[in-house]
């Protein structure tokens, strides 16, 4: 799990082009959207694409992302449970 969290942090930085940010700057328990990292609905769409590409998880509807992207840890737990690759 901790390894997956690290992996996700790196991918988030890359996919969302968070220039100048390092994995250790992201608190895996802090919210990704709103106050935490300050991401928005387009970032959520990018993360949905990333989950499909890298872990074979397909969401039918963007609103499902709201629960999954609450924090990096919750995201990692979801991926662990649902990944197909």
């Amino acid at each position: 799990m901790e390894q997956l969290i690290e992996e996700l942090k790196k991918q988030i930085i890359e996919v969302l082009n968070l220039e100048g940010m390092k994995p250790e700057d992201i608190d895996e328990n802090a919210p990704l959207f709103g106050e935490g990292l300050g991401l928005d609905s387009i970032d959520a769409l990018e993360l949905i694409v990333m989950m499909e590409k890298n872990y074979g998880i397909k969401l039918a509807n963007a609103s499902e992302g709201r629960e999954i992207f609450k924090s990096v840890r919750i995201m990692a737990e979801y991926i662990q449970a649902h990944r197909t690759k």
């Binding site: 769409l45 990018e46 694409v49 499909e52 590409k53």
Partner: peptide
């Protein structure tokens, strides 16, 4: 047509 980047489209 799969896994397309929404930011690029926008």
């Amino acid at each position: 047509e799969d896994c397309l980047p929404p930011t690029a489209f926008m």
